[in-house]
Structure formats: structure tokens, C-alpha cells
Write a protein that binds this DNA or RNA. Structure first.
Lengths: 243, 243
DNA sequence: GACTTTTAAATGTCAGACAAATAAATTTTT
DNA sequence: AAAAATTTATTTGTCTGACATTTAAAAGTC
């Protein structure tokens, strides 16, 4: 691991990259302890604060974890699906909120991906997944539910659908697509009528999954996508020329 | 923005989280300048190195960028699709390499997602996308191509397929799935015979996309998935009881 | 007015120190 | 001898203060 002191970028960024490369390439393996901050400072010929800045960069990506004390230090972290999930959700959410991505574009991507899970989910969903979906449908039918709570339940429903495919990689990839839509969905006001329709489609999906009927799940997802986009479109219309 | 000095976690982590929350919630908007490090140190009642560690954490996630000089400082960064891509690829790659994800699982996820793009790509692909795909197919047919180069070209081919859907959100989500497979694919030795078969299927995909025939694209992708999994399976077999 | 120089403000880096946590080694007590 | 308490060494976490470097604006000069 070497750094180029001539380079224009920050030393801490260079050091972080050097260590990151070592991890990605397998030179440093999971749970391996890195040299102490003092030793790293020596190796890279920089001060300890600079090394620490580099380590914090890596910690922010969950690539390392640190422990204090006699046997402490920085250790290569096994990136858990959980950590990967939350990073993906943060990144996806920010990406959508900062780049004027149209609702249609995001919605299209989300449903395209979700439909990719549907056949697998129809094949493999457990009773547990089904129970989660039914429970969320029940919650969505409660009167007096806020729009935010309705959206959150919607996300939980769709996550159960995705998780039903029993493929952790797929669940991970979808987490961003589904959760990042929530802020966009929150702009929609769900009337009693529209909630009813959504619940109807959710039920249709749950029923079809129970029957392991992939085609009907797909059809219901298409319907749901169309309906959601219509709702968003109406909101946009009403905002353009209000009452 | 407040932090709790009682909390057990690092001060720099708490400060980073406080600022991150402010960005995600929209309290801090794109291109807005954060207070200087000295001012932040004052506000949070910590020292400047601690503030700097927090800022480096945020920089590692591309949430802020820093500039030196008189009008410099830390600015809220507009998360570009490019930045989001690379983060996703790094995370996905590490996730797969560190968690003993089976080739089958990763492969299934990848092709499920890719097939989700196929209909859109058949509808919208430009001549440019097609040209890229043809060029990569041509490259793949070159004799003397290393396995790594063949894999890289394979990735480029599939990226063109995904990009053909003309949905940046979809491209972003797929980037991880497609690129993260590359290290796994690199474990396969591509014989002349297997390359021939892959090229045949790639050509079939390109032809179908040219004809805007979504169904054939889908069928070819299924074939390709099956074939790829068979190849990986054979490698695993051969490794278990060698020659 | 155009060019050069100065200045001020900000980040980048360094050195050295102390605090706090933690496990191992040592000592004391039972 | 075993158990408990204490000490010690190591490492990260944090602070202070300083200087270097970069950069744009302000001041000065022709």
C-alpha cells in the first residue's frame, strides 16, 4: 500500500483509497486487524489525525469498525446485508430527491424491478410473507390512518413481496428502489377512495401469491403501477391550476 | 442540529449523522455552504479535528464536497448518478465477496433484474445502444482475448442493454447487480466453445432488440442465464474432484 | 482601466498531549 | 492455590495550538 505525495487530492482520501483497494482486492480479509493509527501514520509518513480522517471515511462506508482498548484497533468489517440495505436506501433516496427525477421515471423503475421478483415470490413465498402482507393490508384499511403511515405500510407490504423471492441479493437491490419512492409517494394525498383501490389491488396480489399464480400477480402490479401514476398525475394537474 | 454528549458513540459519528439528517430532510439544500469548520466546532462544542472527522465521513458518501481558499468550505453536494453508480458497485461487490453468496443466488438476481429492463429496452433502445452492443460482440469474438477482457466486454454489453431502457433510475439500480457479478464471473474459464455460445446468445439479443421483439430478448436472457449457471456449476464440479 | 501585490479566510496538515476504554499482567487477599 | 483487586500497557477518542496551502477579494501601482 503506497500513496503518491505529489497527487493533488487530500492525503486522507489517498490513504482511504489505498486501504479500500487492499480490502476489495482481498489483501486484507474480514476481521483482520489493521495496524494501529500510530503505525499507519508511520507507514504512510503522515500524522495521526490524517490517518484518522482516512479511517473515518472507511468507517462511513462500513468497511471497517474500530474498538478502543488494549486489543482494540480498526478491523475489516464484514459488510452485512443490513448495512448494505441502509446505505443503498440513503443513496437512492438522496439521488431521487436531488436530481429532479420525475415520478414516472422512478415509478417505472420500481415496478419493473418489482415485477421481476413476482414470479420467484409466487414460487417461494412462505406463510410468513403472506401473513405480513395480510397484516399490512389490514392496517391500510384502518380509518384515521395518516398518509405517512399508509405509505409506510405500503412499503412494508411491497418489501414482504420482494422478500418472498427468498433471494437476499434481490432483496438488497430492491430495498433502494422501494424505499426511496416513499418520499415521492408522500406527496400524494390518499383519499378514502384511492386507498380502497390500492387495498383492492394489494389483496389481489396477496391472493394470487397464495395461489402461486405468477401471472395474476404481474397483472395486479401493472394495474397498481398504472393507478399510482394516475394518482401522481392528478396531483400534478391540481397543483398546476388549483380549484 | 444538536448532538447528545452522553451518547456512547463517537462524537464525529453523531455530528456526521446530525448533518446527514439535515441534508436528507432538506434543511440543507444542494450547493449550500456549511459553516466553516471553526464555526461548526463552536456550534457542536467540540474541537476542529472532531468536526473534520465528521466531514470526512460525509465526504466519503459524496454528501458534501470541500473547497479550499477564501470562499471555500464544505458544500452540500448534488449526488450525481455517476457517484451513486460507483458507490453502488463498490457496496454490491463487497457484499457479494464477503458473504459467501452463491453464484446461483447472485446470478438469479442479476438476470431477474435484467429481464425487467428488456421490454423497456426493446421499446426504446437507440441506434447508439445497438452499436455499442454490436461492437462488444465483435470484441468478444477476437481470438486471444483474456478471460478478464471477455468478462469486461460482457459487462459492457449488458450495460448497454440496460441503458437502452432509457431510465436512469433503472440503470443506476442495475449497475450494482451487473458489475458486482464480474468478480464471480472471473472465476469461470471461458473456453472457445463457451465463448461461441455466449456470443451466439448476445447476437440473438441484439437482433431481437433491433427488431424490438421483447419476447425473444427475454427468451435469450433466460437461455443465457441457464447457460451461465451451467458453466459455473461445471467449474464447481471440476474443482471438487479434479481430473 | 488593467495589472500586480497584499491580505484575509478557509481547508489541509502536523506535533504533542491527555482522557477513556480495555485486556492482560501483577499483586493482594482469602 | 484460587479468587479478587490492582496495576500496567496499548489503543482509540479528543483537545489545543500551530503552520502550510489555496483561493478570491481588496488594495495598490502603472
Amino acid at each position: 500500500m503506497k500513496i503518491d505525495p505529489q497527487k493533488s487530492t487530500d492525503l486522507s482520501a489517498q490513504i482511504a483509497q489505498a486501504i479500500r483497494d487492499a480490502i476489495v482486492s482481498g489483501e486484507l480479509i474480514v476481521d483482520e486487524r489493521l495496524p494501529s493509527e500510530a503505525e499507519l501514520a508511520d507507514q504512510f509518513q503522515v500524522s495521526r489525525p490524517t490517518v484518522r480522517e482516512a479511517l473515518k471515511r472507511l468507517a462511513a462506508q462500513s468497511l471497517i469498525r474500530t474498538q478502543r482498548g488494549a486489543t482494540g484497533g480498526a478491523f475489516v468489517n464484514r459488510l452485512s446485508f443490513q448495512d448494505a440495505y441502509s446505505q443503498q436506501i440513503t443513496t437512492s433516496t438522496l439521488l431521487l430527491s436531488m436530481n429532479e427525477v420525475s415520478f414516472d421515471t422512478a415509478c417505472e423503475a420500481r415496478y419493473a424491478l418489482e415485477r421481476a421478483c413476482a414470479p420467484l415470490s409466487a414460487q417461494r413465498r412462505s406463510a410468513d410473507h403472506l401473513a405480513t402482507m395480510r397484516a399490512e393490508i389490514f392496517r391500510q384499511a384502518q380509518p384515521g390512518l395518516t398518509d405517512e403511515a399508509f405509505c409506510a405500510s405500503d412499503v412494508a407490504f411491497h418489501r414482504a413481496l420482494v422478500d418472498g423471492a427468498e433471494n437476499p441479493v434481490l432483496s438488497y437491490q430492491l430495498a433502494g428502489a422501494v424505499e426511496a419512492m416513499q418520499p415521492l409517494m408522500n406527496m400524494i394525498t390518499f383519499t378514502a377512495r384511492s386507498r380502497e383501490e390500492i387495498i383492492r389491488l394489494h389483496s389481489k396480489i396477496a391472493d394470487a401469491l397464495e395461489a402461486r399464480d405468477a401471472e395474476t400477480v404481474d397483472a395486479a402490479l401493472v394495474e397498481l403501477e398504472t393507478y399510482t401514476r394516475r394518482l401522481a398525475h392528478d396531483v400534478a394537474e391540481r397543483r398546476r391550476k388549483p380549484a
